[in-house]
Computed example of a mutant assay.
Amino acid sequence: MEQTKALNALEPYLALSKSATAHRAAADLITQATSNPNTYVFAELLQTPQIQALAQSPDHTDHLKLLEIFSYGTYANFTSTTSLPPLNDAQTLKLRQLSLLTLAKNPHNLSYAALQQSLSLPNARAVEDLVISAVYAGLVNAQLDPRNGVVHISSVSPLRDLAPGSIPSTLNSLREWSGRCTSTLEDLEAQIASIKVAAAKRHNDKKASAEQAARLVDEEKNAEQGVHSQRQGAMLNRALARIQGQRFGKRGSGSLEPNADEDEAMDVDEEEPDDGEGGSGTSGTALGGPGKKRANRRKL
């Protein structure tokens, strides 16, 4: 999105470059394009024949070098190059913002002190103001860390042009990055495989432990049931033995040993002969009269 917006902002200057046949007009077009607050890419303008023709003009070749610095250079390149045209305030701010995009590639360049030196800023407050302006312009996502004096940049908009001859080095950097990605993926796959093997081993060990615990529980239950059955059998045998002993003891004592206490006594009433019949009448009247029964007890 940032590239599209920057290219759209550059379109009017590309159209004007077709009619800027005079070197002075081409130089003024460079000043206007670099001062616009919405233009951040300049490769298309730099490649136009009218702008490239400035290399043949001794009086305006410095404007071509200035456009090259805006396209892929830094503020340090501007300060180290002599005879360049002076910058207005808008150009100065923009060149420092574009330089911040380049410096953000290396985190070591993002300390307050390093940025202050690279961008020719007077103090730390100026560094913070520049970073804030770049954030509001959508050039970077950054956080200020005044306590540690560091700027933390998480993302950078792709708004810098490639310098001439930088494609081979860029390709080498991309190959190195691809190699690191491949190595990292291989390491991750190896770690994942190792984790899977360890997880499978833990699962098998856990399963074996659970089976062993269940087997021990079953054995313990079976052992307890066996002991309980033996105790019940022993108690049952003792009970049967007592019952049988009592039975046999009663039978032996009733049939073999006489016991006078267990004999039953039977009382039988016997009629004695009436005295009137078998004895004297006087005796019968004295004992109870005629026909009176006398009970005699006899033990059977």
Score class of each variant (00 low, 15 high):
residue 8 N to R: 13
residue 9 A to V: 02
residue 16 L to W: 11
residue 16 L to G: 04
residue 21 T to P: 04
residue 21 T to F: 08
residue 21 T to G: 14
residue 22 A to W: 12
residue 27 A to M: 04
residue 30 I to M: 03
residue 33 A to N: 01
residue 36 N to R: 00
residue 37 P to Q: 01
residue 38 N to L: 06
residue 40 Y to S: 08
residue 43 A to S: 14
residue 48 T to N: 00
residue 49 P to C: 01
residue 52 Q to R: 13
residue 54 L to F: 01
residue 55 A to W: 00
residue 66 L to W: 00
residue 67 L to G: 04
residue 68 E to W: 02
residue 69 I to R: 01
residue 70 F to H: 03
residue 70 F to N: 02
residue 75 Y to H: 09
residue 81 T to S: 04
residue 81 T to N: 05
residue 92 T to R: 15
residue 93 L to D: 13
residue 93 L to G: 12
residue 97 Q to L: 15
residue 99 S to G: 07
residue 99 S to L: 13
residue 109 N to M: 08
residue 112 Y to R: 01
residue 113 A to E: 10
residue 113 A to P: 05
residue 114 A to Y: 00
residue 116 Q to Y: 01
residue 116 Q to L: 05
residue 122 P to N: 12
residue 123 N to R: 03
residue 128 E to M: 05
residue 134 A to M: 00
residue 137 A to V: 00
residue 138 G to M: 02
residue 138 G to V: 01
residue 142 A to E: 05
residue 143 Q to N: 04
residue 146 P to A: 14
residue 146 P to K: 15
residue 150 V to I: 15
residue 151 V to W: 09
residue 154 S to M: 01
residue 165 G to K: 02
residue 171 L to N: 12
residue 172 N to D: 12
residue 179 G to Q: 15
residue 181 C to G: 12
residue 183 S to G: 10
residue 184 T to Q: 14
residue 184 T to W: 10
residue 187 D to T: 07
residue 189 E to I: 06
residue 189 E to S: 08
residue 191 Q to A: 10
residue 195 I to T: 07
residue 197 V to G: 02
residue 200 A to L: 04
residue 206 K to R: 09
residue 211 E to C: 02
residue 212 Q to I: 02
residue 217 V to H: 05
residue 218 D to K: 15
residue 219 E to D: 11
residue 219 E to L: 15
residue 220 E to V: 09
residue 222 N to M: 11
residue 223 A to M: 06
residue 225 Q to V: 08
residue 226 G to P: 00
residue 228 H to I: 01
residue 228 H to V: 01
residue 231 R to L: 14
residue 233 G to R: 15
residue 233 G to Y: 05
residue 237 N to I: 10
residue 237 N to Q: 12
residue 239 A to E: 06
residue 239 A to R: 12
residue 240 L to K: 11
residue 240 L to A: 15
residue 241 A to I: 11
residue 241 A to W: 13
residue 243 I to D: 10
residue 247 R to G: 06
residue 248 F to N: 13
residue 253 S to K: 09
residue 254 G to S: 14
residue 257 E to W: 07
residue 257 E to A: 10
residue 260 A to G: 07
residue 261 D to M: 08
residue 263 D to Q: 11
residue 267 D to C: 06
residue 270 E to T: 12
residue 274 D to E: 10
residue 276 G to Q: 12
residue 276 G to I: 08
residue 283 S to M: 10
residue 285 T to W: 00
residue 287 L to Q: 06
residue 300 L to I: 12
